[in-house]
Design a protein around this nucleic acid. Sequence first.
DNA 1: TTTAAAAATACAATCGATTGTATAAATAAA
DNA 2: TTTATTTATACAATCGATTGTATTTTTAAA
Lengths: 336, 336
Amino acid sequence: MNQKKITIHDISRVLGIDSSTVSRALNDSDRVTQKTKELILNKAKELGYQRNILASNLRTNKTQTIAIVLPRISRYFFATVIAGIEETAQEKGFNVVICQSLDSFEREKKIIHNLIANRVDGILISIAMETTNYEHLESFQSLGNPIVFFDRPCHLDNCVNITIDNYTASFKATEHLILKGCKHIAHFSGKQNIDLYKQRKEGYLGALQKYQIPIDENLIFESNLSEEDGVIMAKKMLENPEIDGLYSSNDTAAISAIQYLKTQGKKIPQDIAVVGFNNDPIAAIIEPSLTTVNQPGFEIGKIAANQLILQIENKTSQNNSLILNSELIIRDSSNR
Amino acid sequence: MNQKKITIHDISRVLGIDSSTVSRALNDSDRVTQKTKELILNKAKELGYQRNILASNLRTNKTQTIAIVLPRISRYFFATVIAGIEETAQEKGFNVVICQSLDSFEREKKIIHNLIANRVDGILISIAMETTNYEHLESFQSLGNPIVFFDRPCHLDNCVNITIDNYTASFKATEHLILKGCKHIAHFSGKQNIDLYKQRKEGYLGALQKYQIPIDENLIFESNLSEEDGVIMAKKMLENPEIDGLYSSNDTAAISAIQYLKTQGKKIPQDIAVVGFNNDPIAAIIEPSLTTVNQPGFEIGKIAANQLILQIENKTSQNNSLILNSELIIRDSSNR
DNA sequence: TTTAAAAATACAATCGATTGTATAAATAAA
DNA sequence: TTTATTTATACAATCGATTGTATTTTTAAA
């Protein structure tokens, strides 16, 4: 039942050719003649040979595996990024392992140490909300392995950052509300140690500035942007009856806020126009449907994986940033 | 920069103790005296020793890794199952790799072959919609490795199936509609090669039978239950003006159907009451909120992982089925 | 035909941990 | 004290592929 595996030594013995030559033939080395190669390849196929990846990994200290580390796989945006990464990885012959940090620093640290122990060749990461210390990532780098950051940039040396134009996207989202006549626009912001939320806030501020709307710090609410946070912030918002617009740094908080606001008798978008961020599938379904920013997740994934694999294969490290464009999708929640 | 790794041989050399003893000490074997163990463990810590998992894997032909294979990680139910599996796996010291079949048989086959090549110790799988042939799974089994099926059962020999009480849940869902006064209840069903959809259909039929409602095959619509399918089936439904209830085998189709029905001027639940299945987060958010069946995904994940790891560690194989209870969550879409 | 150069293949060490067997040390029994 | 028995440690092979070096074979040049 439990058939024993064929090794290069079996092929070597059967053909009377040294196992080193067999190995090289199987790896298509040019140190082996075409004729011998064919001999070996045919015999390998005939015997049903399958390379023992564990042995190969040990010898080369490589695993042909890249890891994705992100807060939560169930978020739509991340799911699209994963799809993009997997497509590219498959093309290039890399395995992918997916790890969830759940936005916890401790979990992220554990994950990275585990990835080091398992000798993954590179990491694609969107860092946890809690993360402010990067030693775990540096120790991965110090082993000569590349890291590519996506979505949430990080300014470690020798890293590639793939992000979207958060500033511009936010600017346009806010501008859109202004052009719809909103005079007092609230902003739901994320933790400011995450660059991306800082940039979104700055885009919001930039738009206000351009249209000479005074900046009111009391209109800016910072949180983790969870569902619960959305309700809490919406409550606070209502204390200021002037507010007639809301730009939220994600859809989750925007949607729970809308739901709460509706229970309080507010009309969306007539009383308060709302714009979110991410284009979660739910944004198209709720009522009113949510105006939001769509990010090219699949493309981000493809580009990030490409960059990473490039670095793995060339053993180079880079220090550049790629910024992709996003688009504002206008729906009913701001349509007035 | 690129610090060279400490091996058991380094420890062996420094202490003048053979590497085999070092290895045994690190594995807490009782062939090593307590005193020597401490000596070795302390030195290991001092030198910053980390076991080379690749070498260990090669020697033992084990990887302490289990794989999850499922259609799509972004589905809420699967995401909760994954969380449960990860919790258990972490407790027991196993790594987890997650793979998406996207309901494609070809992808699933490739994934399994890859998992075999990478010597994962066991597989937790919810088979792809397209899968009707199980050779790929049998070849994993024939290597002496256990498989646990969850969500979508499969009747291979020597396998554990973890599912929910699909028949009962469907029965209750349908009964609920009947008790709300629905006389002509449509059913959105999935592909019948998937046991789970067969059982859900049977539960629907069972409830009709109990209440002596004639079964009308024209009220049963079979599809992949995608968003688009939901709209297509809703259109067909409207050809029959008698229909006053809908029980859908998933929320996705139920929700897109509701949206379409609303555009056609149908009132939910007054004209047509709707019940879904899965309790996707969106079910609580749409209007009207969707009555649906909640599955204990987290628990399913924990139990499935426990079963698998048990088999891996005891090298036993089992052939039993575990059926968990689900609950009907009643919301507005059926509240009339 | 002989020699030099290039090409193909063989030899042997290696990656680092594990494990069956042999030996040495410690303890108990005679 | 000597022998038998148990316990602790050392020796050495092994998992299977990879790779630098050495050797043989082939081809080309003289």
